[in-house]
Structures are given as C-alpha cells and as structure tokens.
Amino acid sequence: MLSIKNLYARIEDNGQEIIKGLNLEVPTGQVHAIMGPNGSGKSTLSYVLAGKEDYEVTEGSVELDGEDLLELEADERANKGVFLAFQYPLEIPGVGTMTFLKAALNAQRRARDEGEISTPDFIKMVRQHASDLGIDQDMLKRSLNVGFSGGEKKRAEILQMSLLQPKLAILDETDSGLDIDALKVVSDGVNRLRSPDRSFVVITHYQRLLNYIKPDVVHVMSKGRIVRSGGPELALELEKNGYAEYVEAA
C-alpha cells in the first residue's frame, strides 16, 4: 500500500510550495486516478514520489508497504518497485534504448538478488513486450526516445513498465498525445499488468482513459492537495462540470 500523509513539498530552487498537505492512500492491487487542473501539482507529486532532487519535502511522510520512501534515492525507490511513467519522457542522445533497458532491468534484478538476465532472454522479452505494445523493432535500435513521436514515447514508457514489473506504477498523463488506437493498445498494456500485488496511480485529464483503465477510486487534486475522492462516477461528473468548484473551494 502507498500511504502519503500530510505531505508538503517545495521547489528547492525558489522555495515555492507546490504540495500543501496532501493525503492519499492507495491499497495494494487498486487503481487510483488523479485528476485536477493544470498546475495543481500532479506532476510534482509524481516527481516527489519518484525521488527527484529538485523538490524538497518539508513535512509529512510517504510509505510504500510500510517503508519510508523519502529516505531513499531515486534508484533505490525504483528498486523497491516504484515506477514513474513520465509526462514528458526525456530524449537521451547516445544512450541506446536496448542498452538502457538492459541496464535498468539488471540493476533492479541485482538489487533483488536475482541474477542478471542473459542477453538472448532479454532480447526475447523486449521483443515480446514491444510487439504487444505495437512498438516497432527499429525504434529499439535508436537512442533512448530520440526522434520518437509523442505517442511513441508514451508507449516506450509502458514498455519499460512492462519489463520492470513495478509494485507501484505512477502514470503521468500517459494518455495525452495518444491517438485512439494507441490509447487502446497502451491501456491494454496497463491492464495486463493489473494484479492483486500491484498498485497504479493514473494521472489524467480525460475521463476517456478511465473507460479503458477502470479505476477503483478517483481523486481530485487542486492547489497541492487532494480535495475530493470518489468512485469512477466522479470522473464523469468532472468531465461535465469542470474544476471550478474545487479551484474556488481549495
């Protein structure tokens, strides 16, 4: 279970507070959606969970299955099973996609005292997941995300998630930039990974994604806090009425 209590976080550079007393619990095996206006701090929350150093937590706690995440470096969190699918996946010229995937997979396996994967097994595994996600084999030969279209980058994030099999996956607007067919493919990819021992936090602006990836709980985030939580019907209501009510209330 992911358990966030009274979390406050600010931008290290300018001290601006973005997360302001946020509480959230995601029981293991559940899918929770977070919706909220632009700039409400959704991506910031995802970065804070993943351990980005640009943010400083000033108060509160974040635990995954009882373990304090805030104590850990980004790589240690990943090795404990935290995965963030980035809203804007970075292009890293010169780093081969396959080299990167293998380094990541082996780092996590080493951290869990599993041996490194053999190259043939690795290639087979990547090919399988890539073809499930409609990712062209040629893309895997390129530098990481370099020259990938917006939609291809999002698929590549899900490919990484499929390979790494995290305990907690945070998907930050993975649906934005996807065409209708890609949305279906990516959602199928996510649904294949749903399991009783894996949780998801799905950040999105569109109720449509939630038709494919059915959430257990929908949260509304505004001005750095969760201001309302409800069932899937809350997403429909937001779609209809927008955020006006929350922006004022928060």
Partner: peptide, 9 residues
C-alpha cells in the same frame, strides 16, 4: 534522474 528512476545507480 531519468536513468536513476529506472533503478540505475
């Protein structure tokens, strides 16, 4: 950060 967020030290 991107690389570390995937578990790479």
């Amino acid at each position: 950060f991107y690389l570390m967020a995937r578990g790479i030290s």
